[in-house]
Design a protein around this nucleic acid. Structure first.
Lengths: 505, 505
DNA sequence: ACAAACACGTGATGC
DNA sequence: TGCATCACGTGTTTG
């Protein structure tokens, strides 16, 4: 098992493929660079295969790399991307699950073995570039679809593929698969040409909050529901009907009768009703919070949900800036006193922090819903398809928390003068210390895979790390909302901020 | 052959050993770090296996390092070095000879199979390692094998795959096949729907920032994506289908054109589709903002939407309180002092938004807010084993010339502040450019493995390179200005710096 | 299975 | 009349 596992992990298959690959055959043009890291039972493999020889254009077309048969690992991206330098990245964190590991030995491996991620990136990508856009957004970055495409969705893109590929069955490896990177989709949609849309903010005015409805009443079963129920049923039904699948048909919806009377359909009915309530409750909670947030924000432009959030965002940035400024001021004044305030700072950092700290226990070993895990992948891109960036690709940053104080970082970006130094500085300023680094470049791209540890007891959150690195690697120019938020954050200075908080405590 | 070769190269055996190794069994204590480089037929593998978990003292004892049978290469350091943290280094430059291949370049392959070095250390004992022998030979890369697969792939990875998927699969590894599937699949899916956010890996994590629309900027464009017909099906399959088709195929609409020519249905269809996109867009915008908000909040308990909002609310309250406190504090101090800056602050504060004080909302008390329990971070223990090693080791520098303009460098030395930077500077000053770097540290030791290329036409000899590096690593004290500046910068805090810059601007 | 969380499409509503 | 926002119920995935 282990062996197989490792085989897969190590990409023997891949390598094999590579070895046989035309690139290789070209004689020396092929260049494999791989970094293998393990953390406990988890193994991460980053592989870059590139044609080192620039002269060899033939190679430039790219190749898909495959994974070995084992069911393996989905290739990251085969598409067009790899053109120039052809670069392929494979990352496969492997987790053996099982939970905590009991340890000793390998036994556990059996069950686990989920292959985690696999990523490939290509340099240029033509076709894809656009695809790049945003995927992240939604997904939070994640992983989503990455590879494939994208987008969306959440989940399946990855599994399915594998299934297909493998043929089947339970693949041992599937889990993480998705991460992949990049960019997903793009999609289409621009379709919407929204050009028109721009309107957004007209300052309208506040709609009446109707919160009432939900606002507070407590209990879930709010009345409202009912009334629509009837109607809704109607539409719902229809749709269902269409669906035709077994489910729907059940009722033979024919008349409008509601489905209600059909207990039989448990999933259909009962589940449905439960879900219905749950959903209502959830919605209510969400609304409540949204309004609560709105209540906190002084300046509200519109009552519209998006605006509420937007205002809140701005407000938070504002507050952060204020805090920082105040802090600075205070420090300055205090400085007069004498003495190393550095120390103060340090100490404050160490002290408990009230809020800031991040919990994240770590990682990817347990997926409990807490969710913290594998952290983030991000690519920054804006959606602008047009992308003014010219050819430069958006940096890809992935931060994964291995343990409370350890992170894995992956940064893929265009080579820029002083870029590495900036990266190191950023890492350092985040209170992180690099324990392992693998830097690989091909053409204008540079891939940095790092393992970092928290230096002091400072608390650093994966997201923050990611954001900072993203900012650093990216050109300040194109900013997105989030980018802006991030930038703001950075300007504020994370540490500073931390410090402030501490002080408060 | 190839496979075996790679197996050996990749250290499957070793890895396997590791997997079974006590360290591993200890649960997470084991840490493998490997860097694999290939240059033509030459493959170099550096592996470091160390116990990452400091807490686990059991591991600390260390291990002997051994070399494999093959004639072995002397272990990098078996000596004392590995003591504390147990360090294992494996280096295997592998050469495959086999003859040459046609290849184009293939520079060095000629000779045969010299296995170069191989070091293994194991913690414990056993050994498996040896099995590894290196058969590697061959291939240098050549072509063929993949032939069918490989080559072809390049181009068509996309098309073909499908075919493969469907039936066939010939290749043992089918890489391609799988790959293709992936893609296909993905495409379908992903593309189709836009994203959803959730996905990540399963564990959830922060979503990536995605950018896009930000607060103010204009509109996002979002791209919604196509829906996928296939799967989504859920309810409205039909409707989707239609839409999908329309959109997707847009061109073809001809036949079905449904909506268009159906004015009648306007509300039904056309309106519907428009609304549909609008809705998607809206959702996306909302999500984006939500994530942007989350990005600003340091402490996030869960990734769940409600939690994001909840955390944001708390954070805002926190910030408000901080601001207030700081203001008070500042005032106090200023009073004593009489300083002027306070004004600045005040003004700034007011200007930005006047409302610091916020009424606490009350609103959001939902019963269930669960979520926020701050978790404690384990972290604390930071006892680095290192540091006090009294005796510093002499740096080891190895320079190997791969080609006229390429070198492989290996530098093993004690970790020193700014050491890496100095090394980089030295390399740079020698007219060399780093194309690949792998830096690994454990305890106080740092191993740098670099591939460098001559930048200009400068001529550099290996000896000179070695000497320079030796010099640099040996005498820390002589630091360049830049190094010093950098270090200083780091100490200051990168962000701070950034901030300053921004300010200037 | 059971529950939580989402995204989705749809109908309704207000400009 | 469009257009944007919303609430809703559903299906689906995750754990």
């Amino acid at each position: 098992m282990v062996a197989q596992c490792m085989e897969a992990i190590c990409g023997v298959g891949i390598v094999k493929g590579i070895m046989n690959h035309p690139y290789n055959s070209l004689g020396g043009g092929a260049n494999l660079v791989a970094a293998v890291y393990s953390h406990g039972a988890f193994v991460l493999v980053y592989t870059v295969f590139s044609a080192t020889d620039h002269k060899r254009s033939a190679c430039d077309s790219h190749v898909p790399v495959c994974t070995n048969g084992r069911g393996g690992v989905p290739p990251l991206r085969a598409e067009g991307g790899c053109r120039e330098g052809f670069e392929l990245l494979q990352e496969q964190p492997l987790r053996i699950d099982g939970g905590g590991f009991p340890a000793v030995t390998a036994p556990k491996m059996t069950e686990g073995l989920h292959t985690a991620e696999f990523m490939v990136s290509q340099c240029t990508s033509n076709s894809y570039e656009r695809s790049i856009d945003m995927p992240m957004a939604e997904n939070g970055g994640y992983p989503s679809g990455g590879g494939g495409g994208g987008g969306g969705d959440d989940s399946q893109p990855w599994l399915a593929p594998q299934l297909l590929a493998a043929g089947a069955q339970a693949l041992p490896w599937d889990l993480y698969a998705s991460q992949s990177n990049l960019f997903d989709r793009t999609m289409d949609d621009d379709i919407l040409h929204d050009g028109s849309t721009r309107t957004f903010f007209h300052s309208g005015n506040p709609p009446p909050p109707q919160s009432e409805s939900m606002v507070d009443d407590g209990i879930p079963e709010d009345a409202p529901a009912y009334h629509n129920f009837g109607e809704m049923a109607g539409h719902c039904r229809e749709s269902l009907k269409m669906e035709g699948s077994a489910r729907t048909e059940s009722g033979s919806e024919g008349s409008d009768d509601d489905e209600e009377h059909r207990p039989a359909r448990r999933s259909g009915k009962q589940h449905c009703s439960k879900n219905l309530f749950a959903e209502r409750k959830r919605r209510k909670k969400l609304n409540d919070r949204l309004f609560a947030l709105r209540a906190l924000v002084p300046k509200i432009t519109k009552m519209d949900r998006a605006s509420i959030l937007g205002d809140a965002i701005e407000y938070v940035m504002d507050l952060q800036k204020q805090v920082k400024d105040l802090q600075d001021e205070l420090e300055e004044t205090n400085q007069a006193d004498g003495g190393g305030h550095d120390k103060q700072i340090g100490s404050s950092l160490h002290s408990s922090n009230s809020q800031m700290d991040v919990p994240i226990p770590n990682g990817w070993m347990d997926h409990d819903d807490s969710g913290n895990n594998p952290r983030t992948i991000a690519a920054a891109d804006d959606n602008k398809p047009s992308s003014d960036k010219g050819q430069q690709m958006e940096p890809q940053v992935e931060v994964r928390q291995l343990e409370a104080n350890e992170f894995f970082l992956k940064v893929l970006c265009e080579h820029k003068q002083g870029g590495f130094t900036r990266l190191m500085e950023a890492i350092s300023s985040l209170g992180l210390e690099v324990t392992n680094a693998s830097v690989t470049s091909y053409g204008s791209l540079v891939l940095n895979v790092l393992r970092v540890e928290r230096r002091d007891d400072e608390v650093v959150e994966a997201d923050r790390v990611r954001d900072s690195l993203l900012e650093v690697t990216r050109h300040p120019q194109g900013r997105s909302e989030l980018a802006r938020a991030v930038e703001h954050q950075q300007q504020l200075g994370f540490h500073h901020h931390l410090r402030c908080l501490h002080r408060q405590a």
